[in-house]
Simulated assay, not measured.
Amino acid sequence: MRNLQTTLIFLQIISLSLCGWLPVEREVKIEWDPESTPLEIKTNSVLGSNDHVYVFFYSAEGQLSGGVVLRFGSTPHYWLLYCSPSYTNFPVKLPSTADKVWRITLTRTAGVRIVIQCNEVEVLNILLSYSTCRYPYWRSYWNRDVAKIQFHSSDTASDYYGSQPVSCTGLKAEWRTAIRTTTKFPVVPGTVVEVNCIESRALNKGSSEVTCTSGTEFIFNLNEPECINTGTKTMMYKVYTNVDRIEMNRKKVREYQLQLIYENSRIHIKETSFMALISDEYLEKDT
Protein backbone atom coordinates (compact mmCIF):
# COMPACT_ATOMS: atom_id res chain seq x y z
CA MET A 1 0.00 0.00 0.00
CA ARG A 2 2.81 2.39 0.87
CA ASN A 3 4.48 1.70 -2.48
CA LEU A 4 1.20 2.42 -4.25
CA GLN A 5 0.79 5.74 -2.43
CA THR A 6 4.38 6.67 -3.25
CA THR A 7 3.81 5.84 -6.92
CA LEU A 8 0.61 7.90 -7.06
CA ILE A 9 2.35 10.91 -5.49
CA PHE A 10 5.22 10.52 -7.94
CA LEU A 11 2.82 10.37 -10.90
CA GLN A 12 1.00 13.45 -9.59
CA ILE A 13 4.28 15.38 -9.41
CA ILE A 14 5.18 14.34 -12.97
CA SER A 15 1.72 15.35 -14.21
CA LEU A 16 1.95 18.77 -12.55
CA SER A 17 5.48 19.27 -13.87
CA LEU A 18 4.30 18.58 -17.40
CA CYS A 19 1.62 21.26 -16.88
CA GLY A 20 4.24 23.82 -15.86
CA TRP A 21 4.13 23.28 -12.07
CA LEU A 22 7.25 22.63 -10.01
CA PRO A 23 7.44 21.44 -6.38
CA VAL A 24 8.31 24.26 -3.98
CA GLU A 25 11.79 24.11 -2.45
CA ARG A 26 12.42 26.24 0.62
CA GLU A 27 15.48 28.39 1.19
CA VAL A 28 16.56 28.13 -2.46
CA LYS A 29 16.91 31.23 -4.64
CA ILE A 30 15.16 30.69 -7.97
CA GLU A 31 15.70 32.74 -11.11
CA TRP A 32 12.40 34.56 -11.58
CA ASP A 33 11.21 38.03 -12.55
CA PRO A 34 7.59 38.54 -11.42
CA GLU A 35 7.44 41.71 -13.52
CA SER A 36 7.88 39.90 -16.84
CA THR A 37 6.51 36.52 -15.70
CA PRO A 38 3.76 36.51 -13.06
CA LEU A 39 4.45 34.01 -10.29
CA GLU A 40 1.76 31.42 -9.63
CA ILE A 41 1.58 29.36 -6.43
CA LYS A 42 -0.68 26.38 -5.71
CA THR A 43 -2.00 25.90 -2.19
CA ASN A 44 -4.66 23.72 -0.55
CA SER A 45 -4.56 25.15 2.97
CA VAL A 46 -7.87 25.85 4.68
CA LEU A 47 -8.81 28.90 6.72
CA GLY A 48 -7.93 28.51 10.35
CA SER A 49 -4.90 26.33 9.63
CA ASN A 50 -2.59 29.30 10.18
CA ASP A 51 -0.50 28.13 7.23
CA HIS A 52 1.62 30.76 5.49
CA VAL A 53 2.95 31.53 2.05
CA TYR A 54 6.32 33.25 2.35
CA VAL A 55 7.89 34.34 -0.95
CA PHE A 56 10.70 36.90 -0.94
CA PHE A 57 12.09 38.86 -3.89
CA TYR A 58 15.80 39.39 -4.53
CA SER A 59 17.88 41.39 -6.97
CA ALA A 60 20.45 39.75 -9.23
CA GLU A 61 23.09 40.70 -6.64
CA GLY A 62 21.13 38.95 -3.89
CA GLN A 63 19.70 42.07 -2.21
CA LEU A 64 16.23 41.81 -0.71
CA SER A 65 13.71 43.53 -3.02
CA GLY A 66 10.42 43.03 -1.19
CA GLY A 67 8.15 40.06 -0.78
CA VAL A 68 4.63 38.76 -0.22
CA VAL A 69 3.23 36.81 2.74
CA LEU A 70 -0.21 35.19 2.81
CA ARG A 71 -1.74 33.84 6.02
CA PHE A 72 -4.61 31.35 6.31
CA GLY A 73 -5.97 32.48 9.68
CA SER A 74 -9.63 32.53 10.65
CA THR A 75 -9.79 35.11 7.87
CA PRO A 76 -7.20 35.35 5.06
CA HIS A 77 -4.58 38.09 5.31
CA TYR A 78 -1.70 39.46 3.29
CA TRP A 79 1.49 41.26 4.27
CA LEU A 80 3.81 43.09 1.88
CA LEU A 81 7.35 42.97 3.19
CA TYR A 82 8.69 46.40 4.27
CA CYS A 83 5.39 48.03 3.35
CA SER A 84 2.33 46.70 5.18
CA PRO A 85 2.07 47.82 8.82
CA SER A 86 0.78 44.36 9.79
CA TYR A 87 -1.29 41.49 8.43
CA THR A 88 -4.11 43.08 6.46
CA ASN A 89 -7.50 41.76 5.36
CA PHE A 90 -8.02 41.34 1.63
CA PRO A 91 -10.37 44.02 0.28
CA VAL A 92 -12.58 41.39 -1.42
CA LYS A 93 -13.82 37.93 -0.52
CA LEU A 94 -11.61 35.06 -1.69
CA PRO A 95 -12.92 32.01 -3.57
CA SER A 96 -14.15 29.43 -1.05
CA THR A 97 -12.49 26.32 -2.51
CA ALA A 98 -9.46 24.98 -0.61
CA ASP A 99 -7.47 24.41 -3.81
CA LYS A 100 -6.19 27.81 -4.82
CA VAL A 101 -3.88 29.20 -7.46
CA TRP A 102 -2.37 32.54 -6.51
CA ARG A 103 -0.93 34.76 -9.23
CA ILE A 104 1.44 37.50 -8.05
CA THR A 105 2.33 40.23 -10.54
CA LEU A 106 4.75 43.10 -10.02
CA THR A 107 4.39 46.10 -12.35
CA ARG A 108 6.37 49.33 -12.61
CA THR A 109 4.67 51.13 -15.52
CA ALA A 110 3.40 53.88 -13.18
CA GLY A 111 5.03 53.36 -9.81
CA VAL A 112 5.43 50.03 -8.01
CA ARG A 113 2.22 48.01 -8.04
CA ILE A 114 1.42 44.56 -6.66
CA VAL A 115 -1.52 42.65 -8.13
CA ILE A 116 -2.65 39.36 -6.57
CA GLN A 117 -5.23 37.05 -8.11
CA CYS A 118 -6.75 33.98 -6.51
CA ASN A 119 -8.30 31.43 -8.87
CA GLU A 120 -8.38 34.17 -11.54
CA VAL A 121 -10.21 36.60 -9.23
CA GLU A 122 -8.35 39.83 -8.49
CA VAL A 123 -8.17 40.11 -4.70
CA LEU A 124 -5.53 42.83 -4.34
CA ASN A 125 -4.34 45.67 -6.54
CA ILE A 126 -2.24 48.14 -4.61
CA LEU A 127 0.10 50.94 -5.65
CA LEU A 128 2.95 51.19 -3.19
CA SER A 129 3.47 54.71 -1.89
CA TYR A 130 4.26 56.62 1.28
CA SER A 131 0.54 56.63 2.06
CA THR A 132 0.03 52.87 1.57
CA CYS A 133 3.33 51.73 3.09
CA ARG A 134 4.08 52.17 6.77
CA TYR A 135 7.84 52.11 6.42
CA PRO A 136 9.43 55.29 5.01
CA TYR A 137 12.30 53.25 3.54
CA TRP A 138 10.04 50.96 1.48
CA ARG A 139 11.47 52.37 -1.78
CA SER A 140 14.96 51.18 -0.84
CA TYR A 141 13.67 47.62 -1.22
CA TRP A 142 10.81 47.70 -3.70
CA ASN A 143 12.57 49.91 -6.26
CA ARG A 144 15.25 47.28 -6.81
CA ASP A 145 14.90 45.08 -9.87
CA VAL A 146 13.72 41.58 -9.05
CA ALA A 147 15.65 38.69 -10.59
CA LYS A 148 15.11 35.90 -8.04
CA ILE A 149 12.51 34.56 -5.63
CA GLN A 150 12.84 32.43 -2.52
CA PHE A 151 10.29 30.49 -0.49
CA HIS A 152 11.17 31.00 3.18
CA SER A 153 11.60 28.07 5.55
CA SER A 154 8.50 29.31 7.43
CA ASP A 155 6.36 28.70 4.33
CA THR A 156 3.88 25.93 5.16
CA ALA A 157 1.26 26.53 2.47
CA SER A 158 3.03 26.66 -0.91
CA ASP A 159 2.95 23.30 -2.69
CA TYR A 160 3.87 24.11 -6.28
CA TYR A 161 4.91 27.18 -8.23
CA GLY A 162 5.11 28.09 -11.91
CA SER A 163 3.63 30.34 -14.53
CA GLN A 164 0.67 29.17 -16.53
CA PRO A 165 -0.09 30.69 -19.95
CA VAL A 166 -2.39 33.70 -19.80
CA SER A 167 -5.32 33.41 -22.21
CA CYS A 168 -5.76 35.96 -24.97
CA THR A 169 -8.79 38.10 -24.20
CA GLY A 170 -9.18 40.07 -27.44
CA LEU A 171 -7.49 42.07 -30.17
CA LYS A 172 -5.11 44.89 -29.32
CA ALA A 173 -6.94 48.10 -28.40
CA GLU A 174 -5.32 50.07 -31.23
CA TRP A 175 -6.54 47.53 -33.79
CA ARG A 176 -10.19 47.43 -32.81
CA THR A 177 -11.33 50.58 -34.62
CA ALA A 178 -10.28 49.25 -38.03
CA ILE A 179 -9.70 45.50 -37.68
CA ARG A 180 -12.06 42.66 -36.81
CA THR A 181 -12.02 38.88 -36.41
CA THR A 182 -14.59 36.10 -36.20
CA THR A 183 -12.56 34.38 -33.45
CA LYS A 184 -14.38 34.06 -30.14
CA PHE A 185 -12.21 35.08 -27.17
CA PRO A 186 -10.71 34.01 -24.82
CA VAL A 187 -8.33 31.66 -26.63
CA VAL A 188 -5.22 29.85 -25.46
CA PRO A 189 -1.74 31.13 -26.34
CA GLY A 190 -0.57 29.86 -29.72
CA THR A 191 -4.00 30.21 -31.34
CA VAL A 192 -3.84 31.62 -34.87
CA VAL A 193 -6.40 34.41 -35.33
CA GLU A 194 -7.52 35.56 -38.77
CA VAL A 195 -8.09 39.31 -39.06
CA ASN A 196 -9.51 41.59 -41.73
CA CYS A 197 -10.58 45.19 -42.18
CA ILE A 198 -13.94 46.41 -40.90
CA GLU A 199 -14.45 48.74 -43.88
CA SER A 200 -15.18 46.89 -47.11
CA ARG A 201 -13.12 49.38 -49.16
CA ALA A 202 -10.12 49.20 -46.81
CA LEU A 203 -6.99 47.21 -47.60
CA ASN A 204 -4.95 45.33 -44.97
CA LYS A 205 -1.30 46.10 -45.71
CA GLY A 206 -0.05 43.76 -42.97
CA SER A 207 -0.55 40.16 -41.89
CA SER A 208 -3.97 38.60 -42.25
CA GLU A 209 -3.14 36.05 -39.54
CA VAL A 210 -1.75 36.79 -36.07
CA THR A 211 -0.78 34.41 -33.28
CA CYS A 212 -1.91 34.91 -29.68
CA THR A 213 0.80 35.11 -27.02
CA SER A 214 -1.10 36.40 -23.95
CA GLY A 215 -3.69 38.98 -22.96
CA THR A 216 -4.03 41.24 -26.01
CA GLU A 217 -0.54 40.58 -27.36
CA PHE A 218 0.05 38.93 -30.74
CA ILE A 219 2.94 38.09 -33.05
CA PHE A 220 2.79 38.09 -36.86
CA ASN A 221 4.93 36.86 -39.74
CA LEU A 222 4.84 39.95 -41.94
CA ASN A 223 3.99 43.51 -40.94
CA GLU A 224 1.55 44.43 -38.20
CA PRO A 225 -2.04 44.47 -39.49
CA GLU A 226 -2.93 47.93 -40.79
CA CYS A 227 -6.01 48.93 -42.74
CA ILE A 228 -5.67 51.67 -45.39
CA ASN A 229 -8.80 53.32 -46.74
CA THR A 230 -9.32 52.92 -50.48
CA GLY A 231 -12.30 53.49 -52.77
CA THR A 232 -13.50 54.62 -56.18
CA LYS A 233 -15.88 57.39 -57.28
CA THR A 234 -16.90 58.71 -60.67
CA MET A 235 -17.70 62.42 -60.94
CA MET A 236 -17.28 65.49 -63.13
CA TYR A 237 -14.22 67.60 -62.28
CA LYS A 238 -12.65 70.66 -63.83
CA VAL A 239 -8.93 70.17 -64.35
CA TYR A 240 -6.91 73.37 -64.72
CA THR A 241 -4.07 72.89 -67.20
CA ASN A 242 -1.02 75.04 -67.83
CA VAL A 243 -1.40 78.61 -69.05
CA ASP A 244 -2.75 78.68 -72.59
CA ARG A 245 0.01 79.49 -75.07
CA ILE A 246 -2.17 81.93 -77.01
CA GLU A 247 -3.79 83.79 -74.15
CA MET A 248 -1.05 83.85 -71.49
CA ASN A 249 -3.29 85.48 -68.86
CA ARG A 250 -6.09 82.94 -69.07
CA LYS A 251 -6.22 79.39 -67.76
CA LYS A 252 -7.59 76.77 -70.01
CA VAL A 253 -10.33 74.60 -68.52
CA ARG A 254 -11.13 71.09 -69.69
CA GLU A 255 -13.83 68.82 -68.37
CA TYR A 256 -13.40 65.06 -68.10
CA GLN A 257 -15.48 62.19 -66.81
CA LEU A 258 -12.91 60.94 -64.31
CA GLN A 259 -12.61 57.98 -61.99
CA LEU A 260 -11.09 58.92 -58.64
CA ILE A 261 -9.22 56.23 -56.77
CA TYR A 262 -8.20 57.16 -53.23
CA GLU A 263 -5.05 55.46 -52.07
CA ASN A 264 -2.64 56.46 -49.28
CA SER A 265 -4.07 60.00 -49.14
CA ARG A 266 -3.32 60.64 -52.84
CA ILE A 267 -5.73 60.71 -55.76
CA HIS A 268 -5.20 58.70 -58.92
CA ILE A 269 -7.31 59.99 -61.83
CA LYS A 270 -8.14 57.66 -64.68
CA GLU A 271 -10.10 58.30 -67.91
CA THR A 272 -10.16 56.37 -71.17
CA SER A 273 -7.98 58.83 -73.09
CA PHE A 274 -6.33 60.55 -70.16
CA MET A 275 -4.33 59.37 -67.12
CA ALA A 276 -2.71 61.61 -64.55
CA LEU A 277 -1.58 61.76 -60.94
CA ILE A 278 -2.34 65.13 -59.36
CA SER A 279 -2.92 66.50 -55.86
CA ASP A 280 -6.08 68.00 -54.32
CA GLU A 281 -5.13 71.63 -54.90
CA TYR A 282 -5.44 71.23 -58.69
CA LEU A 283 -8.94 69.84 -58.50
CA GLU A 284 -12.18 71.74 -58.25
CA LYS A 285 -15.40 69.83 -58.11
CA ASP A 286 -17.87 70.78 -60.85
CA THR A 287 -20.99 72.11 -59.26
Results as ranks from 00 to 15, higher is better:
His52Leu: 14
Pro76Lys: 03
Ser36Cys: 10
Ile104Lys: 00
Thr109Asn: 08
Val55Asp: 00
Ser65His: 05
Ser59Val: 02
Pro95Val: 08
Thr88Leu: 07
Pro23Val: 07
Asp99Ser: 15
Leu70Arg: 11
Lys100Ser: 02
Leu94Phe: 09
Phe56Trp: 10
Glu25Ile: 05
Ile41Pro: 03
Leu80Asp: 04
Leu22Lys: 14
Leu64Ser: 09
Ser65Trp: 03
Asp99Glu: 14
Trp21Asn: 05
Lys29Pro: 00
Asn50Tyr: 14
Trp102Asp: 06
Thr75Pro: 01
Thr107Leu: 09
Asp33Phe: 01
Arg71Cys: 09
Ser65Met: 05
Gly66Pro: 02
Ser45Asp: 05
Arg103Leu: 04
Trp102Ala: 03
Glu25Tyr: 05
Lys93Gln: 14
Gly67Met: 00
Leu47His: 04
Lys29Asp: 00
Val101His: 06
Ser59Tyr: 01
Gly62Asp: 08
Pro34Ala: 04
Ser86Asp: 15
Phe56Asn: 14
Leu106Asn: 06
Gly20Asn: 04
Leu81Cys: 02
Tyr58Phe: 12
Cys19Val: 10
Ala110Asn: 15
Trp21Lys: 06
His77Leu: 13
Lys42Arg: 15
Pro76Ala: 05
Asp99Val: 10
Phe57Val: 03
Lys42Ser: 13
Leu80Arg: 02
Asp99Lys: 15
Pro38Ser: 06
Trp32Asn: 00
Leu64His: 11
Glu27Gly: 03
Phe56Gly: 11
Ser96Lys: 14
Val69Gly: 05
His77Cys: 12
Ile30Phe: 05
Gly48Gln: 03
Thr75Ala: 09
Leu94Lys: 07
Pro23Tyr: 06
Trp102Tyr: 11
Ser96Leu: 10
Lys93Ile: 14
Phe57Ile: 03
Tyr87Glu: 09
Ile41Trp: 01
Tyr87Asn: 11
Thr37Met: 09
Asp33Gln: 07
Leu106Lys: 09
Leu22Met: 13
Lys100Arg: 12
Ile30Leu: 10
Ala110Asp: 15
Arg71Trp: 13
Asn89Ala: 15
Leu39Thr: 00
Ile41Asn: 01
Tyr82Asp: 12
Glu27Tyr: 08
Trp79Gly: 05
Leu22Asp: 07
Val46His: 07
His52Pro: 02
Ser74Cys: 09
Val101Pro: 02
Lys29Glu: 03
Ser96Pro: 07
Lys100Gln: 08
Gly48Ala: 11
Asn50Thr: 10
Asp33Gly: 02
Ser86Tyr: 12
Val55Glu: 01
Ile30Lys: 03
Glu61His: 12
Pro34Asn: 02
Ser45Thr: 04
Ile41Val: 15
Leu106His: 10
Asn50Met: 14
Val92Cys: 05
Trp102Pro: 01
His52Thr: 14
Pro95Phe: 03
Leu80Tyr: 07
Glu27His: 03
